[in-house]
Design a binder for these strands. Structure first.
Length: 490
RNA sequence: CGGGGUAUAGCGCAGCCCGGUAGCGCGCGUCGUUCGGGACGACGAGGUCGUGGGUUCAAAUCCCGCUACCCCGACCA
C-alpha cells in the first residue's frame, strides 16, 4: 500500500500534521492560527461533549451561556489573572467600518471607537463572577454549579492544529460554594471526572496531580491537572481543575450571608477541557496507517465494505450487509455501509484505516457463498474470516475488547517511558535522550524549578497519593519527601 | 517580538542562478477495461506566476517596496 503519511519515527510533527489533514479531522483556515474542524473531527468532539456533559449532569451541574466579549475593566480586577492573560488577548476597539474615500475598500471608522475596549474571552472567570455577584445573597443561593460550552480566543504566537489554535472550543465549569471544604471537594471531584473520561472513554492513561506555584492557573490557589504521555515522549496537559479560593469573589465582591448571619466571600472553582483533547487522542494511539480511535469515541464503530465485480453481484451482498448493519444498529453500534461505487475496496480499506474506524467488515461473493464475512481490527490490523451467524454479538464484545486493548497498550507505553531518576545526570539523560516522564525528587523551591525549566522541561505535576519516599532533590541535593513528574511538554 | 524561509492549476512541487510568452505528479471530467489492500489506458478541463512599482524590445525569472503564510526561539489548554 502506498503510504500517504510521513512515518512517525521519521518526523513526529509532520506525521501528526499529515494525519490531521488526511484523515479529514481538520484543516488550517484562512484566519491566522485558526482551524476549520471538518465534519469527521467535529463528530469526535460531539461524542466527547456528550460523554462529558452526561458526567457533568450526573454530578449536579447545569449548562448556561455567558457573553463572548468582556469589558477590559472586568478583566483587570484580579491581578494575577490579568498578568497571566494580558499578552494573548484579542481586543475589540471599534464597532464600525466605512468606505475609504481615497483608496476605495473598507477601513475602520475612527469615529466608531469604543469608550471601553472589549476583550474576546480567553476564559470566562471575570464575566461570570461579575454575573454571579447578582445571583448570590444568602448561603441558600449556594452552591452555583454551572458549566458553559463555548469558544475562546488566545492570541498564541505559534499554533498547531488542535494542540494550540488561536480559537478553540472547550467547556468551562464555574462553581460557587459557601465553604472552602465544599469548593475543594468540587475541584477534586471534577478532576476525577476528567481522569475517568480520559482513561475509560478515550483510553488515555493519565497522571493526576497538583501544578507547582509557577505553573498553576492565573488567579488560582491550586491547579489540579491530568497529564498524558504522547508517543513521542512528550507530556500533554489534558484537563485542569482549579481551586480559586476567594480570589475572584473578592475581586468581584461576591459576598453572601452565612448561617450565622455574617457576611463572607464565596469559594470558587473552575475546570476545563478543550479540543486539544482530540490532539491527545490522535497522538496517544495512532500509527503510520492513520488514526486509531477507541470504540467509545469513534463516530463510526463498524464499516462494511462490499466487494463485487459486475453490478449483478451487488444486490446479494447489499442484502447481507444491510442485515448485519440492522443487527449492529439494534445493539447500539454505529455502522456505515459504504456502498459507493465511486471508490474501490482497496481504496476504502485504506481510507477507513486512516480514519481509525475500529472494525471493518468486507463482504464479497466468496463470503456470500460460504455464509462468512471478513473482519479486520484497526488497532492490531489483524484479519479473520468469521461466520455471518452471530457476528453482531461477536462485534459487540470485540469493541469492548478493543477499547481495553488500546488502553493497555497506551498504559504499557507510559510505564515503559516513565523513569525514576535520582541525579541531575539521570534526569537530563531522560529529558534529552529517552523522553517520557521522569520521576524525581524536588525540594519544592522556585530556584530548583527554574533550573529544571532551563532544560526546556517542566514539572508537570506533583502526583496525588504519592508513595512517601524520602530522597534528595535532583537539583539542590536538599531533602525531599516525594517525587514529582518532570517532562518536556506540548 | 528576534532569526530563517516560502508565495507558480484544487493540493504538492519544478522552472528563477543564466530574461524569450508556463511544466510535472496527485486530484478533477468523459469513455473503456477493472474491482478480495489506495487499478490501468486514451482523451480532456483547469494558471491575472501573492501584490504594487521599476529595468528591458521582452519579466514567473533581474531590482525596490508591501502583504500573507510556514519553520526555529520566547509564551501557552
Amino acid at each position: 500500500m502506498a503510504k500517504v503519511l510521513t512515518s512517525k519515527e521519521e518526523n513526529y510533527a509532520q506525521w501528526y500534521n499529515d494525519l490531521v489533514l488526511k484523515s479529514g479531522l481538520a484543516e488550517n483556515s484562512a484566519v491566522r492560527g485558526s482551524m476549520v474542524i471538518k465534519p469527521y473531527g467535529y463528530a469526535i468532539w460531539e461524542k466527547m461533549k456528550a460523554e462529558l456533559d452526561r458526567k457533568f449532569k450526573e454530578t449536579g451541574h447545569e449548562n448556561a451561556y455567558f457573553p463572548l466579549f468582556i469589558p477590559k475593566s472586568f478583566f483587570s480586577r484580579e491581578a494575577e489573572h490579568v498578568e497571566g492573560f494580558a499578552k494573548e488577548c484579542a481586543v475589540v476597539t471599534h464597532y464600525r467600518l466605512k468606505t475609504d474615500e481615497k483608496n476605495g475598500g473598507l477601513v475602520v471608522d475612527p469615529d466608531a471607537k469604543l469608550e471601553e475596549e472589549l476583550i474576546v474571552r480567553p476564559t470566562s472567570e471575570t464575566i461570570i463572577w461579575n454575573t454571579y455577584k447578582n445571583w448570590v445573597q444568602s448561603y441558600r443561593d449556594l452552591p452555583i454549579l454551572i458549566n458553559q460550552w463555548a469558544n475562546v480566543v488566545r492570541w498564541e504566537m505559534r499554533t498547531r492544529l488542535f494542540l494550540r489554535t488561536a480559537e478553540f472550543l472547550w467547556q468551562e465549569g464555574h462553581t460557587a460554594h459557601a465553604t472552602r471544604e465544599e469548593a475543594e471537594k468540587e475541584t477534586m471531584q471534577m478532576l476525577r471526572v476528567y481522569e475517568e473520561f480520559a482513561e475509560n472513554f478515550l483510553a488515555i492513561p493519565v497522571i493526576v496531580g497538583h501544578k507547582t506555584e509557577s505553573e498553576k492557573f492565573a488567579g488560582a490557589v491550586d491547579t489540579l491537572t491530568i497529564e498524558a504521555l504522547m508517543q513521542d515522549g512528550k507530556a500533554l496537559q489534558a484537563g485542569t481543575s482549579h481551586f480559586l479560593g476567594q480570589n475572584f469573589a473578592k475581586a468581584f465582591d461576591v459576598q453572601f450571608t452565612n448561617r450565622e448571619g455574617k457576611l463572607d466571600h464565596v469559594w470558587a472553582t473552575s475546570w476545563g477541557m478543550t479540543t486539544r483533547m482530540i490532539g491527545a487522542l490522535i497522538m496517544a494511539h495512532s500509527d503510520d496507517n492513520g488514526l486509531i480511535l477507541p470504540p467509545r469515541v469513534a463516530p463510526i464503530q463498524v464499516v462494511i465494505v462490499p466487494i463485487y465485480r459486475g453490478a449483478d453481484e451487488f444486490p446479494a451482498i447489499a442484502e447481507v450487509a444491510n442485515r448485519i448493519k440492522a443487527q449492529l444498529t439494534a445493539l447500539g453500534i454505529s455502522v456505515k455501509f459504504d456502498d459507493r461505487d465511486t471508490q474501490k475496496p482497496g481504496w476504502k480499506f485504506a481510507e477507513y484505516e486512516l480514519k481509525g474506524v475500529p472494525v471493518r467488515l468486507a463482504l464479497g461473493p466468496r463470503d456470500i457463498e460460504n455464509g462468512n464475512v471478513e473482519l479486520a481490527r484497526r488497532d492490531t490490523l489483524e484479519k479473520r474470516v468469521l461466520p455471518q451467524e452471530g457476528i453482531a454479538q461477536y462485534i459487540q464484545e470485540l469493541l469492548e475488547e478493543i477499547q481495553e486493548s488500546i488502553y493497555q497498550k497506551a498504559l504499557t507505553f507510559r510505564n515503559k517511558n516513565t523513569h525514576k531518576v535520582d541525579t541531575w545526570e539521570e534526569l537530563t539523560d531522560v529529558l534529552e535522550n529517552k523522553g517520557g516522564f521522569a520521576l524525581a525528587h524536588w525540594d519544592g523551591t522556585r530556584e530548583s524549578e527554574d533550573k529544571i525549566k532551563k532544560t526546556k522541561a517542566t514539572i508537570r505535576c506533583l502526583p496525588l497519593n504519592p508513595e512517601d519516599e524520602s530522597g534528595k532533590c535532583v537539583v539542590s541535593g536538599k531533602p525531599s519527601k516525594r517525587r514529582v513528574v518532570i517532562a518536556k511538554a506540548y
